[in-house]
Design a protein around this nucleic acid. Structure first.
Length: 191
DNA sequence: GACGTTACGGTTGAG
DNA sequence: GCCTCAACCGTAACG
């Protein structure tokens, strides 16, 4: 992360494809969650996806009990780099949850201020269209032509704020369930 | 042997 | 509705 682009690589290592005997990873297992892979410790993981919440929870819990990271790594079959990362983050933020994956860098148009204003407009006039809100943001001087959010951004914000689902209580278990359900259906459609 | 760090391929989602 | 791209993920390996 802190590696500079032009810096001389400190270590030359084989590519992952070379490290793993076949198809980039050692083993592929079919799990209800889709593309599961098996790491060197025999643990199942999904490349690019966060570890399940209960595993993350367990890592923190075991660390709390004074169990050493290497033992946690072996017991839960999670790479020690991952254990170290999760514990580090937990110490810094107090949260075991993964960061927000995906999304573009905010273009500084949908600032909390703007979001608040959009909410306000929508509350005042629920029938208001996105383009009208956009217009009003300009008119009220909240944004100018350069930083006004796009119509699709506005409708996205409105969907998240007024979409009908209780967006605020993003309970971890709910997220887990949603994810598992979504991925299961995905798998089913493929299967 | 334990642990911090980094390169890598992969996934995700806002714009 | 599709594409792009930056941010994050976990693993493996180095030091």
């Amino acid at each position: 992360m802190t590696a500079l682009a032009g810096a001389v690589p400190r270590m030359m290592r084989p590519t992952l494809a070379q490290s793993y005997p076949r198809s980039g990873f050692p083993l592929e297992v079919s799990t209800p969650l889709g593309q599961g892979r098996v790491n060197q410790l025999g643990g199942v993981f999904i490349n690019g996806r966060p570890l399940p919440n209960h595993i993350r929870h367990k890592i923190v819990e075991m660390a709390h009990h004074g169990i050493r990271p290497c033992v946690i790594s072996r017991q839960l079959r999670v790479s020690h780099g991952c254990v170290s990362k999760i514990l580090c983050r937990y110490q810094e933020t107090g949260s075991i949850r993964p960061g927000a994956i995906g999304g573009s860098k905010p273009k500084q148009v949908t600032t909390p201020d703007v979001e608040k204003k959009i909410e306000e407009y929508k509350r005042d006039n629920p029938g208001m269209f996105s383009w009208e809100i956009r217009d009003k943001l300009l008119k009220d001087g909240i944004c100018d032509r350069n930083n006004v959010p796009s119509v699709s951004s506005i409708s996205r914000i409105m969907r998240s704020k007024f979409g009908g689902k209780g967006e605020d209580d993003d309970d971890e278990d709910e997220i887990e369930k949603k994810r598992a359900g979504g991925e299961r259906t995905e798998g089913q459609t493929q299967h």
